[in-house]
């Protein structure tokens, strides 16, 4: 336990140092506005991939509806900040809570499904959310929601990302997290051990959806306008690619996956047709040479160099 806290502290110090450097680059105008926006998008993508990893990687439930939950968080928070002038943070959390609540309601029936069936159900669900939003006049329908305050700064995105990493990492290392991993490893055995599998699947789904909602809120406040086409199932696939690329069951992997996908996509901004070719190639090569993902189940804190800080690994 003690060594875990110490790792958290080291990661926090490292995170703050990284923030100071990046913020310095931004204030010093060394990074232009294109790369600034991409840094913010990277933080948002990390929140999305890590939260999706909790569902798909750690709990082993194949969900394809992450863009839908992101949309809920985005629309709830923009309505609250634009129409009701709520403080930004409270609006983001409300968006997260809304997405989490919907995740809970939908998780209860759908998580009784297995494998492919769950994937199809969540895929459909994401589309239902998007099309429902498209038909609500109050939020602008297909034309989109306008006049959103430009609240998302690099600082907000970075620290909410750190908070997400901290919470999900601690969840995964808790008894609840172990129960989730046991479900992924072998659902029948987990049930035979007395683990309430439905409860833990719904819990992981709810938490994952909640963080997707927060990320959606951050995403929406980067732009002057959002519309439902930002939240199609292709977006869900993007997050899935990040998770699979980095490794199902590794937070470090999800960060790396988000990094790779965000920057490949930014680098190819002028040739968008090539993106899908590059993603497909990356995944094919991955399946050939490293099917468990770049990091597999391993975290950066598992590497030897960290044990020196902790004074040797407990076994």
């Amino acid at each position: 336990m003690n060594s875990l806290r110490k790792t958290d502290l080291i990661m926090l110090v490292f995170g703050v140092a990284l923030f100071i450097v990046l913020q310095g680059l931004i204030t010093g105008r060394i990074l232009n506005s294109f790369w600034q926006l991409n840094l913010i998008i990277l933080c948002i993508n990390i929140i999305l991939s890590v939260s999706l990893n909790l569902i798909n990687g750690y709990t082993g439930q194949f969900s394809l509806g992450h863009a839908g939950f992101m949309a809920i968080g985005a629309y709830v928070s923009v309505v609250l900040t634009t129409n009701f002038h709520w403080p930004f943070l409270i609006a983001l959390l409300a968006g997260g809570a809304g997405a989490g609540f919907l995740g809970f309601l939908i998780g209860l029936p759908t998580l009784r499904l297995y494998g492919d069936y769950l994937a199809i159900a969540t895929l459909g669900l994401g589309e239902i959310i998007r099309i429902t939003i498209m038909n609500i006049e109050y939020v602008g329908g297909a034309a989109g929601f306008m006049n959103i305050p430009h609240n998302t700064t690099f600082t907000w995105a970075f620290f909410l990302m750190l908070a997400t990493l901290f919470i999900i990492k601690n969840f995964v290392n808790s008894t609840h997290g172990r129960a989730c991993i046991a479900i992924r490893e072998n659902e029948i055995a987990a049930e035979a051990m007395g683990i309430n599998t439905t409860k833990y699947k719904v819990m992981a789904f709810t938490i994952g959806a909640g963080f997707a909602g927060v990320a959606g809120g951050l995403f929406a406040h980067c732009f002057y306008i959002i519309n439902p086409t930002s939240f199609t199932f292709m977006q869900s696939f993007n997050y899935l690619i990040m998770v699979v690329l980095g490794g199902l069951g590794s937070i470090t992997g999800s960060i790396a996956g988000a990094f790779a996908v965000t920057f490949v996509s930014a680098g190819l901004a002028s040739w968008p047709e090539f993106r899908m070719i590059i993603y497909a190639l990356m995944l094919i090569l991955l399946m050939f040479y490293r099917p468990q993902g770049l990091f597999g189940y391993i975290e950066i804190t598992d590497f030897k160099i960290f044990s020196r800080f902790r004074g040797g690994r407990k076994s």
Binding site: R178, A182, N186, A189, M193, G194, I195
Partner: peptide, 25 residues
């Protein structure tokens, strides 16, 4: 308590973690 058919151990976890999960409740 049941020992399921085909053993159904948690293959990617250590022996210790498997035993810990046995005492989950």
């Amino acid at each position: 308590s049941q020992v399921p058919e085909g053993r159904r151990i948690f293959a990617n976890m250590t022996v210790m973690e498997n035993l810990d999960l046995g005492a989950f409740i």
